[in-house]
Amino acid sequence: MTKAIFCPTCKTTVLAENENFPFCSDRCRLLDLGAWASGDYKISSPILDPELLEEVEQSQLLAEARNNEDRWKH
């Protein structure tokens, strides 16, 4: 049985035998690569290191405080 999926870029049906699988064409493959290269796609995971998590929370609080301070100046 031939496996078929949808192209992640344009959603066209693609057969596993297609030379550009899982994309339907070289164009769709390059568009996807461009999206990765420009930062449109991101792989994120939860921060599990307690020290790093605390550092991130501190920087978020500082940024929030600066934003509030800027609002009061204007």
Rank of each mutant, 00 (worst) to 15 (best):
L30E: 14
Q58L: 14
T12F: 03
F23C: 01
D40S: 09
E17W: 03
D70S: 10
W72F: 10
E51R: 05
P50Y: 12
C24E: 06
S38E: 13
T2D: 13
L15F: 04
R66S: 09
K42V: 15
L48Y: 13
E19F: 00
E69N: 07
L30S: 10
M1N: 08
N68Y: 12
S44P: 03
S59C: 05
T12R: 01
L15V: 09
G39T: 11
E55A: 02
Q58W: 09
C10Y: 06
I43N: 02
V56E: 14
E55K: 04
A65K: 10
R71Y: 10
L61R: 13
L48C: 10
K11H: 08
S45C: 09
T12I: 12
R71N: 11
S45N: 06
F23D: 01
S59I: 15
D49C: 02
E69M: 08
H74P: 04
E51P: 00
A4P: 03
E19N: 03
T12W: 00
E19W: 00
L52Y: 10
D32Q: 07
Q60N: 07
P46R: 11
D70E: 13
F6T: 12
C7L: 03
D40Q: 11
K11M: 12
A4I: 13
N18C: 05
W36Q: 10
W72L: 15
L62E: 15
V56F: 07
E55R: 00
K11N: 07
E57L: 11
A37M: 14
I43K: 07
S38R: 09
L48G: 08
E55W: 03
P8A: 13
I5G: 03
F23G: 01
L62K: 11
I47T: 14
L15Y: 01
I47G: 01
K3C: 07
A63Q: 08
D32T: 10
Q58T: 15
A16W: 00
I5R: 12
V56K: 13
S59H: 02
I43H: 01
R71A: 12
R27L: 02
A35H: 06
F21L: 03
N68F: 11
C28V: 02
L53T: 13
S25A: 05
Y41G: 07
R29Y: 02
I47P: 02
L33W: 06
D32S: 12
F6L: 15
T2G: 04
T12E: 12
A65I: 14
L31R: 07
T12V: 13
L48T: 15
G39Q: 06
L52A: 10
L62Y: 09
A37K: 12
T12Q: 12
C28A: 01
A63G: 02
W72E: 15
L33H: 00
E54P: 00
R71I: 15
L62H: 01
S45I: 14
A35L: 08
G39L: 09
S44F: 01
L61Q: 14
A4D: 02
S45D: 14
H74R: 12
T12M: 11
C7N: 04
